[in-house]
């Protein structure tokens, strides 16, 4: 059992969720309530990682964040090392790759709030920020929770993108999914089996707990 890889995967998932939570709230709300010409375009762009093979996506990320790219060069100047093949690079890739899993449910959650209820919040004197805290977030919570759980579970299970932009550096970019692959390559079926079982257990319980929680929230609002 490669505990380092498991911890790394959990850390990566936690970071991805932490970064995507505010992003999905803001972008989801913007897409749910906003009326603008390029909305379809933005929605399509958000969904793109869902249909692209991780290899294609990873390839472009390598190009975008590589040492010779403007972003990569800037990162190098700021932090003294490059983005790709580091944990930070993995987080960046994971955040982008999980955009559809986070934003879609968040958007649906915001869309489920009746327009009049949001208008009522404004007419009650709640500023947009206060309305976000007191009305939007509590009501969109089931959608946001789904978003975060999907992101978490999906990050734990991600393989292709990690391999492309992370490589397999132990303690830095070697996640549990990569470790399992390595074990299978090395004919360590027992090790791969244990790690796979652990991953199944974690992913299943995460999703099960969410379903249970959202059923409770549903009852609370009904």
């Amino acid at each position: 059992m490669d505990w380092t890889a498991l911890t790394l995967s959990l850390e990566l998932a936690a970071w991805t969720v932490a970064i995507l939570l505010p992003i999905s709230v803001l972008v989801g709300r913007w897409l749910a309530y906003g009326r603008f010409r390029a909305k379809g375009m933005v929605e399509a762009l958000v969904m793109l990682p869902l249909v692209l093979p991780p290899t294609v996506f990873g390839f472009y990320l390598l190009l975008a964040f590589g040492r010779n790219s403007p972003v990569g060069a800037l990162w190098n100047d700021l932090f003294g090392h490059q983005v790709v093949f580091t944990f930070e690079g993995l987080v960046v890739a994971s955040v982008i790759f999980n955009l559809p899993f986070a934003i879609q449910p968040a958007q649906r959650g915001c869309e489920a709030i009746p327009v009049e209820v949001r208008e009522a919040a404004a007419c009650c004197g709640l500023s947009p920020w206060r309305a976000l805290w007191k009305v939007d977030l509590p009501l969109a919570w089931p959608g946001l929770m789904t978003a975060m759980v999907l992101t978490f579970a999906h990050t734990l299970g991600e393989f292709g993108i990690v391999l492309m932009v992370g490589g397999s550096i132990p303690g830095e970019t070697k996640t549990i999914a990569i470790a399992i692959y390595d074990r299978v390559q090395g004919f360590d079926m027992a090790g791969a089996g244990i790690m796979s079982a652990v991953l199944v257990a974690i992913s299943f319980s995460t999703i099960a707990v969410t379903y249970w929680l959202s059923a409770r929230v549903g009852r609370r609002l009904a």
Binding site: E116, V117, E119, A120, A121, C123, P138, L221
Partner: peptide, 15 residues
């Protein structure tokens, strides 16, 4: 704006 509004379907905060 200090306007009290009663909406057609009340628009109460369900939570």
């Amino acid at each position: 704006r200090r306007a009290g509004v009663v909406f057609q379907n009340y628009a109460l905060f369900p939570h």
